[in-house]
Simulated assay, not measured.
Amino acid sequence: MTKTVLYARVSTADQTLEHQRTQAEKAGFKIDKVIADHGVSGVSTKLAERPEGKRLFDILRPGDTLVVRWVDRLGRDYRDVSDSIRHFMGEGVVIKTVINSMVFDGATKNPIQQAVRDALIAFMAATAEAQATATKEAQKAGIAAAQAGDPKAYRGRKPSYDRAMFEKVTGMLDQSAGASAIAAVTGLTRQAILRIRDDRAGAEKALALWSL
């Protein structure tokens, strides 16, 4: 019997396991099994080397579906993400994302569909790595500024949101929610939502400066 497996990677800078499962269920997925790695870097640790991530290679069978919030849950390294997706497709596993409802299926024989699929894999894997790099640089900049002289002189205005709220906002933005709708749910001002939307790296830097 085929199964649907949700894989989640959870860290202090990412969404919780409960949030990722709730998002998947709201998107219509019926999850049979959840596998999650906690506190594992998606940049420095390959999927096959993570305590739980490596189980995917053992339990997934032809016809199974692997669900992830987005491909960045599989990893933030271009080569690792693209290789993992291609491996699972080669094993007859279908990969589906909650955000944007992407489907990666190795069964298609249509050359045009194959070309589009492969281009999407490359683009999404590259985007995951680029976002990780931007976040890392923003955090480094925030720490460096805080260590230079009087930290208060470099902090600027304290953010009106904490890390958990930032994750909630970015999660809703990734699902194409509007600023007004997000403001109504979170209680933040529409202007704050727009600032996060337009400059996520800057928002990350502010959180790092204020140790939020």
Rank of each mutant, 00 (worst) to 15 (best):
T2I: 08
L6Y: 02
R9W: 02
T16Y: 06
T22N: 12
Q23T: 09
E25R: 10
K30H: 14
I31Q: 06
D37R: 00
G39W: 02
T45R: 06
A48S: 14
E49L: 14
P51D: 11
F57S: 04
I59W: 11
L60F: 04
L66Q: 08
V68N: 03
L74R: 03
R76P: 01
H87E: 10
H87V: 09
G90H: 07
E91L: 09
V94R: 10
V94P: 05
V94F: 03
I95G: 02
T97R: 05
V103F: 04
F104V: 05
F104E: 03
K109G: 02
N110L: 05
V116Q: 05
I121Y: 04
A122N: 06
M124D: 08
M124L: 12
A132P: 00
T133V: 15
T133Y: 12
A134M: 14
T135E: 15
T135F: 15
K136F: 15
Q139W: 11
Q147M: 13
Q147P: 00
G149P: 10
P151Y: 07
P151A: 13
G156Q: 02
G156R: 00
P159H: 08
F166W: 15
T170N: 13
T170G: 03
G171L: 04
S180N: 14
S180Y: 11
I182T: 03
I182P: 00
V185Q: 11
T186C: 07
I193H: 10
L194R: 03
R197L: 00
D199N: 15
R200W: 06
A206F: 00
S211I: 01
